[in-house]
Design a protein around this nucleic acid. Structure first.
Lengths: 251, 251
DNA sequence: GCAAAAGTGTTCCAGCTACACCCATGA
DNA sequence: TCATGGGTGTAGCTGGAACACTTTTGC
């Protein structure tokens, strides 16, 4: 075995007390502006959409941007994004909110140094929140010209949603309180970007204990067909339902 | 179907032009201190350990803290944490670095408002980087008294590592360039917290294309035994190797 | 030969997909 | 009674766990 620990003494900074100046408390702090942004997603007419507003002023005038804004003085980022979203959608419509990532590229804002912490927000389908005049829903697959790095943040949020649909119950945040299985499979198809068979989705989510029958059903439409049973998610908070899909611990 | 979109007009702020003041550019910015922290993990003697330094000054004097510090003026968070880590460990030893999350609780720092963006850093096993005198490795399962919210950040990093071991090739960052399968299963056991059979791990990672044989082998020890083949990871950058463990797209 | 450690073959099982078939309803 | 859409049964596949067995070494 020749691949063992190599000693190294050629790092001039490794042994000193430089830490004092790096982690010290009292020196001239570098302060920066910090904003919270949200990728708010909703499935509308079978399509995954994101809530954007159109910038009326420079920079990036006329381009579309994520809702959000400056962090307040005594505010956490989560509280901040909730406050700011309240001016776009009724916060009671937000079924889920989680932190995505923080962008810090010095060039991401053309004028002043601004860090942005992005959140992923979800709004259940089948409601149509009132939004301001400059604000609207855009298909996540076909984004308009977007300001700053916001387009890539939307892709990041979409990616997170797709991943979590596989191993958590996050579907609860996409669906209304009650739904049929064919409606639910439509939400999954819109979010995942591929077909999801309702018949199998039903058994997967039942097996995982995510959904349950309400006992009620929906009358069939003009064209007939068997009435669809109504389901609901058993909990409306995020749970990991398939943690050990792979590499599970021994029996 | 009675569960359709409800209209709402009872939100006084939803229709106005308040966005201008929220997302406007030119007003009195609220600035805050921002730091980058790192949960640097390494498997040492079969145990997952985290790199911590002992605070010599208040606040939290005598408690242990994550390496990191203030964000510099023209610096991205990633560049910042690399710079700061260079004063603890040789950055060339860092086999992987990824952003974890940003903490913003107003009470997380007793004195001044400080946001912290945490990173997860990994150092391959079998090397022993030179670290400053106040800095050392601590078992992640048995943390010493820790400053601020750093203990919960460590748990967050550990959780991330555990999850990614299941569906990515992040093992490359825990293992040295070449290793035997029983060594590798030891790294997995240490990080996951449960036994991982070397015989099955070998087949799983070979099937996923994560590892390959080098062709060489290691002579057996005094007690005999068949010599172990040496393996390496095929790529030393993060790849998702098992994205569709569940809910995979149709054939 | 014997013990020890690595590697292989094989079986089993969970979980998901696919698809044929059955059920309930409207026109 | 037929078309339509929902629900069930079942076969098959994939991938991981478990474990017995074989191989290669030191003593």
């Amino acid at each position: 075995m020749t691949r063992n620990g190599r000693d190294r003494v050629d790092n001039p900074e490794a042994n000193g007390q430089v830490r004092a100046s790096v982690c010290g408390e009292a020196d001239h702090a570098v302060l920066s502006a910090h904003e919270a942004l949200a990728v708010v997603l909703q499935i509308r007419s079978g399509e995954l959409c994101v809530l954007l507003w159109r910038r009326a002023l420079p920079p990036c005038e006329g381009e579309w941007a994520l809702p959000g804004g400056r962090l307040g003085a005594g505010e956490s980022l989560g509280a901040s994004i909730r406050r700011q979203l309240a001016q776009k959608v009724d916060v009671r419509d937000l079924s889920h909110l989680e932190q995505l990532e923080t962008r810090s590229d010095p060039g991401r804002h053309p004028q002043r140094r601004t860090l942005a912490t992005a959140y992923l927000g979800l709004v259940p389908a089948n409601i149509d929140p009132v939004v301001p005049a400059d604000t609207g829903w855009h298909p996540a697959a076909l984004l308009p010209p977007m300001a700053f790095d916001h387009a890539s943040i939307v892709r990041s949020g979409h990616h997170r949603l797709r991943a979590k649909l596989s191993y958590t119950n996050v579907g609860f945040a996409l669906a209304p309180p009650e739904f049929t299985m064919s409606e639910l499979s439509g939400y999954y198809r819109a979010a995942l970007g591929h077909d999801v068979a309702a018949t199998n989705l039903r058994r997967v989510l039942l097996r995982r204990g995510q959904i349950e029958e309400t006992g009620r059903s929906v009358p069939s439409g003009r064209s007939g067909g068997r009435p669809a049973a109504l389901f609901r998610f058993r909990t409306r908070g995020l749970e990991i339902t398939d943690a050990f899909a792979v590499l599970r611990p021994p029996g």
